[in-house]
Design a protein around this nucleic acid. Structure first.
Length: 205
DNA sequence: CGCCCGATGTGCT
DNA sequence: GCACATCGGGCGT
């Protein structure tokens, strides 16, 4: 239900079935959904506006390209769990595991538009312009207090410290795709395959 | 705005 | 050893 204020009051935690499909489709479907972090009983959240899909050991940009390891094991597990990894010596990045169990696939959440808990977010991103609070995969993790302690948790229960809510369904015409970021090391076709998805603001949408 | 580069720890060769 | 699904500061345009 959408109130006269435009606020969706029937938002609910997305179920595991949402994440069972093809990871590229889930990556598109996650645009417009709301990433929620529950911290000390308070909500901090934002609308997902940029995602990337990674799938399979054959995808040479995927963390599973060298097979299963302790680091990437969560990707091989069941859909709807958080795969959170540490990189560049100081940053955490947040993914959602997708697809059938046993096949490594995940959606990297690359950017959100902050909506709730702006006091918490601004405090965690002190000294940074609001526009730069959550416009990167490690930035949003810092803003929401997401780190390796949450790796492997289920995102499909409302009591989870992190979950994703149904919010907006973004039309196909409002989605732009482009090559994934930061994987120049990968050979073709993986370097160029357009598995990065963003919400584009087109007239008439 | 853009480009360049250092930070800093883990995982894989 | 070295590369890395990044970020932020510094400096030039």
């Amino acid at each position: 239900m959408v109130t006269p204020f435009g606020y969706n009051t029937s938002m609910s935690c997305l179920p595991a079935s949402f994440y069972l499909g093809e990871v590229t489709e889930v990556a598109r479907a996650l645009l417009g959904k709301r990433l929620v972090r529950q911290l000390d009983g308070k909500r901090a959240s934002g609308v997902i506006c940029e995602t990337e899909a990674y799938r399979g050991e054959e995808d040479l940009a995927c963390h599973a390209r060298s097979g299963r390891s302790r680091r990437n094991a969560v990707m091989y597990g069941s859909a709807g769990k958080a795969y959170i990894y540490f990189t560049y010596g100081m940053h955490w990045c947040f993914n959602v595991v997708c697809g059938v169990e046993g096949y490594p696939a995940a959606v990297l959440i690359r950017a959100i538009n902050p909506m709730e808990g702006l006091d918490v977010i601004s405090a965690r991103r002190a000294g940074v312009k609001p526009a730069d609070w959550c416009n990167g995969p490690a930035k949003l993790c810092k803003a929401l207090g997401i780190d390796g302690a949450l790796n492997g948790i289920s995102l499909t229960e409302p009591a989870s410290p992190v979950f994703i809510e149904d919010d907006i369904t973004v039309g196909e015409k409002s989605i732009s795709s482009s090559p994934r970021v930061g994987i120049q090391y990968a050979p073709e076709p993986w370097r160029s395959i357009p598995w990065r998805y963003t919400i584009s603001c087109q007239a008439g949408m």
